[in-house]
Every structure is written in C-alpha cells, then in structure tokens.
C-alpha cells in the first residue's frame, strides 16, 4: 500500500484505481439500458427476417452504428463484470489474473469480430470469404 490512507465521511476511499472502475461500470451500465431496449425492438424486427431484409436494415448507418456502439460497450461492461465476479470467487491471485486475462481476450476477440461483421454488412460487402483468398 502506498500513500496515506484517506477517508471521506469516515469511509475509506479507494487508494488506486477502484473508484475509476466503479464509475466506468456505472457509466457503461447506464448507457446500455436504453441500448438494451433498442436491442429488444431490433430483435423483434429482425426475428425470422429474410436475408435481404436484414441487409437493408444494416444499410441504415444509424442501425449499424448503434449496433457497433452496443457491441463495444457491452463487451467492455462484461469484461469489468467478470473481473468483479472473479475477484469475489477466485482467491488465488495467479488463477484470478489468468482467468481475467483469458476472458478479456475472449471479449476482445468477440468485440473485434462483431465490429468486423457489422462494418462489412453496413458497407454491403460481398459475402465472406470474399477478399480473403476466395
């Protein structure tokens, strides 16, 4: 522990980074609530829709943009949420760090894949694997 322990209203305040993470969790969750409602309405619109209808939906930049924002915020939030869960239930520091890192990697890959697919669909690119050797 570095530095003097500080108190605010007799409650110990975070010494390093805990406060920032708490605030990030709150901001992300607050932003995700209206986006969640939008996802529900989107799910209703696109459930069982034909391929062309879905591509038309993606051709609207507002739809594609909101979906991309939702993906990034949601995977970021889940990364923080899993960190909290692992901190509560995995007491071994090594295993906890390994699991946190692994899940961060998984969420990063999922977010990157989502953005890649969303951008291609929004631009109306030819179906994959066009541009990747086919």
């Amino acid at each position: 522990m570095s530095g003097a322990v500080k108190f605010k209203n007799n409650v110990k305040i975070s010494e390093r980074h805990g406060g920032g993470e708490w605030l990030a969790e709150r901001v992300l969750l607050t932003a995700l609530l209206p986006l969640g409602l939008w996802v529900a309405s989107t799910g209703f619109t696109l459930a069982g829709a034909a391929y062309d209808a879905v591509l038309d939906w993606f051709a609207n930049p507002l739809n594609a943009g909101l979906l991309a924002v939702t993906a990034v915020l949601l995977f970021g939030y889940l990364s923080l949420a899993w960190k909290v869960i692992l901190e509560d239930y995995v007491p071994q520091a090594g295993a906890r760090k390994a699991l946190t890192g692994l899940l961060n990697l998984v969420f990063f890959v999922l977010a990157a894949a989502s953005l890649f697919f969303i951008v291609r669909l929004a631009l109306g690119s030819a179906p994959l694997p066009a541009g990747f050797g086919a």
Binding site: Y51, I85, L110, F117, R120, P127
Partner: peptide
C-alpha cells in the same frame, strides 16, 4: 450476476448470427 454470465454465453450466438450474415445467404 447470473444474467451477465448467461449474456456472455448468449452473445456467442449473436456474434455467430452476425457471422452467418457476413458469410452470405446460404450461411444465413
């Protein structure tokens, strides 16, 4: 917490849906 864990699993299906769309009509 259970919801967030379930959402993490469920999002794999959503990303797969996006991937199927990006891979064209047959995959979709």
């Amino acid at each position: 917490r259970a919801t967030l864990i379930a959402a993490s699993v469920g999002l794999v299906f959503i990303v797969a849906w996006l991937g199927a769309l990006a891979f064209g009509p047959e995959a979709y």
